[in-house]
Measured scan of single mutants.
Amino acid sequence: TGEEYIAVGDFTAQQVGDLTFKKGEILLAIEKKPDGWWIAKDAKGNEGLVPRTYLEPYS
């Protein structure tokens, strides 16, 4: 299990392996990579890379 984050903006996948999401979606951070791209999972179970700058902790 990971930590929940809320998307603060829309993001469209730029390449294969990225995860597209919309502002307000809750994402589960699976792995926090030091380069600023995290592996996350959305509510539908889709998994991919997301930019850290689009996420804020969800409580």
Rank of each mutant, 00 (worst) to 15 (best):
T1A: 13
T1Q: 13
T1C: 15
T1V: 13
G2D: 11
G2P: 13
G2F: 14
G2V: 13
E3D: 12
E3N: 13
E3A: 10
E3M: 12
E3H: 10
E4I: 15
E4W: 15
Y5E: 00
Y5S: 00
Y5G: 00
Y5D: 00
Y5Q: 01
I6Q: 06
I6W: 06
I6S: 04
A7K: 00
A7Y: 02
A7V: 04
A7D: 00
A7T: 10
A7Q: 00
V8K: 11
V8W: 05
V8R: 09
V8G: 04
V8E: 03
G9H: 15
G9Q: 15
G9M: 15
G9S: 15
G9F: 15
D10R: 02
D10S: 09
D10H: 06
D10P: 05
A13H: 03
A13F: 03
A13T: 04
Q14Y: 08
V16A: 13
V16H: 12
V16M: 11
V16L: 12
V16K: 13
G17E: 05
G17N: 06
G17D: 06
G17V: 04
G17R: 05
D18P: 02
D18Q: 15
D18E: 15
D18I: 11
L19K: 01
L19T: 01
L19M: 06
L19S: 00
L19D: 02
T20E: 08
T20H: 06
F21M: 06
F21Y: 02
F21P: 01
F21S: 01
K22F: 10
K22H: 09
K22R: 12
K22Q: 09
K23H: 06
K23R: 11
G24N: 06
G24E: 02
G24K: 02
G24T: 02
E25T: 08
I26F: 05
I26S: 03
I26P: 02
I26V: 09
I26L: 08
L28Y: 12
L28C: 11
L28V: 14
L28A: 06
A29V: 15
A29Y: 03
A29K: 03
A29M: 12
A29P: 06
I30C: 06
I30L: 12
I30M: 09
I30S: 04
E31Y: 10
E31I: 12
E31H: 12
K32P: 06
K32Y: 07
K33G: 12
K33Q: 09
K33N: 13
K33P: 07
K33D: 06
P34G: 11
D35H: 06
D35K: 03
D35W: 04
D35F: 05
G36V: 03
G36T: 03
G36Q: 05
G36D: 07
W37G: 04
W37V: 06
W37I: 08
W37E: 04
W38M: 08
W38A: 01
I39F: 11
I39A: 05
I39L: 14
I39E: 04
A40G: 04
A40E: 01
A40L: 09
A40C: 15
K41A: 08
K41I: 13
K41S: 07
K41G: 04
K41R: 15
D42K: 01
D42I: 02
D42A: 03
D42P: 01
D42E: 01
A43K: 13
A43F: 09
K44Y: 14
K44W: 15
K44A: 13
K44M: 13
K44S: 12
K44T: 10
G45W: 02
N46Y: 07
N46Q: 10
N46S: 07
E47Y: 14
G48E: 01
G48Y: 03
L49F: 14
L49D: 04
L49H: 09
P51R: 07
P51K: 09
P51T: 03
P51G: 05
R52Q: 14
R52G: 15
R52M: 15
R52D: 11
R52Y: 14
T53I: 14
Y54N: 07
Y54G: 05
L55W: 00
E56W: 08
P57L: 10
P57A: 09
P57S: 07
P57G: 06
P57N: 06
Y58F: 12
Y58A: 10
Y58L: 13
Y58M: 11
S59F: 14
